[in-house]
Design a protein around this nucleic acid. Structure first.
Length: 441
RNA sequence: GGAGAACUGGCCGAGUGGUUGAAGGCGCGCGCCUGCUAAGCGCGUAUACGGUUUAGAGCCGUAUCGAGGGUUCAAAUCCCUCGUUCUCCGCCA
C-alpha cells in the first residue's frame, strides 16, 4: 500500500510512476477523495467535541438534580447528533473509497529501475554457465514433457485423471528427485543463515491482503468457499473464506503481521517449502505443455524483513542466494532486471533468474526476487522499533525470492542433464539426497 | 459440530451508563536518597488520525477496553452479529 501522505504531497511523481508501470491508477481521483475526506474530518470532530462537552454537562446537571435543564440540553444535543450521523455516513463512504483506491495501487518502482513497457525492455545483467550444444553431441534433446513420461517419472495423463489438466504426477525417481530438490535447497538456505518454517497452505484474507494478492488478484487464487456459502462481508470477502496460497511469500511475510519487532532482531531471513496453488485464470494457452505452468507446484521460498536502509543490499544477497542454487546444480542461467512495465504489483525492484531450457531453446523464468520496500509492511502492519535511533515505530522492508521453483527446476535438470540414450544424469549435489542414484534410466 | 466461561494498556488486574484513556500493581524511564548490594521516595510511561507550527516540541480535538453494528444526550459498562481462547461433549489422522 502506498503512503497516502506521500501521494498527496508528490502527485506528479506518483502519476509518472503509475504511467511507467502501465497502470491506470487514478491519482486525481485519489486526490479529490482525499481532499473531501480531509475537509469532512475536522467538521465531524468538532461536532463530536461539542456533543461530548454537552453530554458531560448533562451528566453534571443530572447529578445536581436539575432535571428540566438536563432535558432541555438533551433536546439541543439531539440536533447535533443528527448532523453527526449524516456527516459520519459521508465520511465512512469516502473512507471506504479511499481505502479501496489505496489497496489497488501498485507499488512505486525504485528510481534505479529501467522504465519500459514490458518484457522486451527488461535488462539482462549477467549470464552464468554455457548451455550444452546438443548438435555437437550428435543428438536432438527431448523436451521434459516427452522425456519425463518416457522415463516413467512424470505422468501428465494420470494427473488429469486425478485432478484436471495442468497438474502433474511424479513417480519413482521423479518423486525422489523432487524431494531431493526440496531438501537440497532448504539445506543451502540453512547454511546461509535462513530459518526454516513449515506453514499452512490455506490462508485467510488478511494474509493475502498483506502480500498484495488481494483484493486485485482474487481470480488467481483457489478458494475454499463460493460466494453463496456464507455471509458477504465488507470488501466482498466471504465469511470464513480461506485461500490456497499461491506462494509461501504470503504466509512468510504475514508471520509478523501486526507486530512491532525490535531493530536488533533485523534482518530476519526465512525460508519455507510449500506447495503453491494458482488458478492461472489469465494464462489459458500459455506454456500449455509440461510442468512449466501448472495449477499446483512446489517451491522453496526466501523472505527477508529488513531495516529500510538495508533492503536493496539484501535484495542483492537474496538474488545471489537464488543463483547459488542453480550454480550448484550446474544449470546455466541469466539474471534479468525487470523494467517498470513488467514488475509485479507489490515490488519496487525485481530480479528474475532464468534457467536455460533446451525445449524452449531459451532461458525461462525459474526465480523472481523482489524488494517490496514498505509496501507490504504497510498492508500487513509490519513495524520495528529502534529506540537508539528514533522514537516510536516504523515500517520495515520486506523482500521475497524463489529459491527455487522446484517444478521448473525439475524440468531444467532433466532437460539439461539428459543423455543420448534417453537417460538423465543426476547432478552430483543431489545424489546424497537420492540414496546415491547417479543416473535415472 | 454442540454446550458453557472468558476477551481491558508491555504484563497482571479493577471497573455494569456520566470529568474513565481507563484505579491499583508489576515492568520500564528520569530524578532523589542510601558508604557496595538490597530496599525506599518523587515524577513520568499507549497508538493512530486531524488542527495549530517553517519543522520539531508543545497545545487543542477525535477515535481506540477482541472486531463490527445497534440503543442513548452520553457506552469498557446495555443489546445483536462475528472472531479468538479455555473447559466439557461429539467426531477424527
Amino acid at each position: 500500500m502506498l503512503d497516502a501522505k506521500f501521494v498527496r504531497e508528490n502527485p506528479d511523481a506518483v502519476r509518472a510512476a503509475m504511467k511507467s508501470r502501465g497502470s491506470n491508477w487514478d491519482v486525481d481521483e485519489f486526490l479529490a477523495l482525499d481532499e473531501k475526506r480531509r475537509a469532512i474530518i475536522p467538521e465531524v470532530e468538532s461536532l463530536q467535541a461539542q456533543r461530548n462537552a454537552a453530554s458531560k454537562q448533562i451528566g453534571a446537571l443530572m447529578k445536581e438534580g436539575k432535571r428540566d435543564a438536563a432535558e432541555a440540553a438533551k433536546a439541543e444535543v439531539g440536533t447535533i447528533k443528527d448532523t453527526i450521523a449524516d456527516l459520519d455516513a459521508q465520511r465512512s463512504e469516502i473512507d471506504a473509497q479511499v481505502r479501496h483506491l489505496l489497496a489497488t495501487a501498485p507499488n512505486l518502482p525504485d528510481a534505479s529501475v529501467t522504465i519500459g513497457g514490458g518484457e522486451e525492455d527488461n535488462v539482462e545483467l549477467k549470464r552464468w554457465g554455457t548451455p550444452r550444444d546438443f548438435a555437437v553431441e550428435g543428438f536432438e534433446p527431448q523436451a521434459h514433457w516427452d522425456l519425463g513420461p518416457a522415463l516413467g517419472i512424470v505422468d501428465f495423463e494420470r494427473a488429469v485423471k486425478l485432478a484436471e489438466s495442468r497438474f502433474v504426477v511424479l513417480s519413482g525417481a521423479g518423486a525422489a528427485l523432487n524431494r531431493a530438490l526440496m531438501n537440497f535447497m532448504i539445506d543451502q538456505h540453512l547454511n546461509a543463515g535462513y530459518k526454516e518454517w513449515w506453514l499452512p497452505v490455506l490462508a485467510n484474507a488478511d494474509t493475502l491482503f498483506g502480500s498484495g494478492n488481494l483484493p486485485k488478484f482474487e481470480d488467481d487464487l483457489y478458494k475454499t468457499k463460493t460466494e453463496s456459502d456464507g455471509n458477504a462481508l465488507e470488501g466482498g470477502v466471504t465469511a470464513g473464506q480461506l485461500y490456497l496460497t499461491p506462494t509461501a511469500e504470503t504466509t512468510l511475510t504475514s508471520l509478523h503481521r501486526d507486530e512491532v519487532l525490535e531493530g536488533k532482531q533485523l534482518p530476519l531471513r526465512y525460508t519455507a517449502y510449500t506447495p503453491c496453488f494458482r488458478e492461472e485464470a489469465g494464462s489459458a494457452g500459455r506454456d500449455t505443455r509440461g510442468m512449466i505452468r501448472v495449477h499446483q507446484f512446489d517451491k522453496v521460498e526466501m523472505v527477508k524483513l529488513t531495516r529500510p536502509e538495508d533492503s536493496f543490499e539484501a535484495l542483492e544477497d537474496m538474488t545471489q542466494q537464488g543463483e547459488k542454487i542453480l550454480e550448484l546444480l550446474g544449470l546455466p542461467y541469466r539474471r534479468i532486471e525487470l523494467c517498470t512495465g513488467d514488475m509485479g504489483f507489490s515490488s519496487a525492484k525485481t530480479y528474475d533468474i532464468e534457467a536455460w531450457l533446451p525445449s524452449y531453446n531459451d532461458y525461462k523464468e525459474i526465480s523472481s526476487c523482489s524488494n517490496c520496500v514498505d509496501f507490504q509492511a504497510r498492508r500487513a502492519n509490519l513495524k520495528y522499533r529502534d529506540p537508539e535511533n528514533f522514537k516510536g515505530s516504523r515500517y520495515l522492508h520486506t523482500l521475497n525470492g524463489s529459491g527455487q521453483a522446484m517444478g521448473r527446476c525439475f524440468a531444467a535438470i532433466i532437460e539439461n542433464y539428459q543423455n543420448a540414450d534417453g537417460s538423465v544424469t543426476v547432478p552430483e549435489v543431489l545424489r546424497p539426497y537420492m540414496r546415491g542414484l547417479e543416473v535415472i534410466r
